[in-house]
Design a protein around this nucleic acid. Sequence first.
DNA 1: ATCGGTGCAAAGGTTTTGCAGGATT
DNA 2: AATCCTGCAAAACCTTTGCACCGAT
Lengths: 141, 141
Amino acid sequence: MNMTAPKETRNTRQRNLILDCLKEHCDSHMTVDEIFALLKDKGHDVGIATVYRNLKSLEDQGLIEKVYISGGAAPCYKMLDETAGNKHTHHHMICRNCGAIADFDEDLLDAIEKIVLVTKDFTVTDHRLSFYGVCGKCSKK
Amino acid sequence: MNMTAPKETRNTRQRNLILDCLKEHCDSHMTVDEIFALLKDKGHDVGIATVYRNLKSLEDQGLIEKVYISGGAAPCYKMLDETAGNKHTHHHMICRNCGAIADFDEDLLDAIEKIVLVTKDFTVTDHRLSFYGVCGKCSKK
DNA sequence: ATCGGTGCAAAGGTTTTGCAGGATT
DNA sequence: AATCCTGCAAAACCTTTGCACCGAT
């Protein structure tokens, strides 16, 4: 018996345009508005509702990631590295001066997670880590 | 010459009520709605706009902290430990099962921050770290 | 041909703001 | 007394939803 029909996802022009935007900016994050504006700039008329719907479905499919930058209001989206598994393997470095958000790919928290398990009775399955500070470019000025 | 008059902050009933709410829940986080509802339950009629305005000013003063739980939508507020300096000295442990948010007070990231500086040319002045997993209570069920 | 996606506009929710009156210093 | 804060309601935003049409499979 077919319990739940595996709802298919269609390969629409709008969906691809949104994915392209995120791919172009794969080293940073984009807000919904930024994606919408970039599409407009490129001359593509896509409804804002479509942007929201696609971002949600892409997130459900695990192709993109929704990120809340602490202290900032607008949620951001970014491409998820297709090589990454379920677990987070990168962190963010956020410059307090210019606002640049860079990724930090290595995962250095394994030792700390073991400490958490032993001392806090909490089994860590995932983590989010952001560093705030001053990027090299800004510190040279 | 008085460059910028140091705008004073008044000690109003509403401001104290909001701070009391957050103090009572100092080990967890509260959404705007939760604070508003708790005040109502206690019989204090405070306008929602006042709650928003006070939370913003308390945040500006560094007395409370605004936290975006990744994946969740509503921003949360919590008391900032008055013993803590500018730098973060605690992390969050968020149970995927029951949603409990506990604090992890030790700061274990010093070594990692040094690595970031050397390998990434990024001077870390602060960080946010959240662990996701299963708390002891839930894992026993 | 079917069924999901799209665009529009309306609805829903959250946060901010203008203003007159009230409270704190 | 001065000025900051409050409450209300309106406004401004952001996000979701209903519906008829369009497009991908």
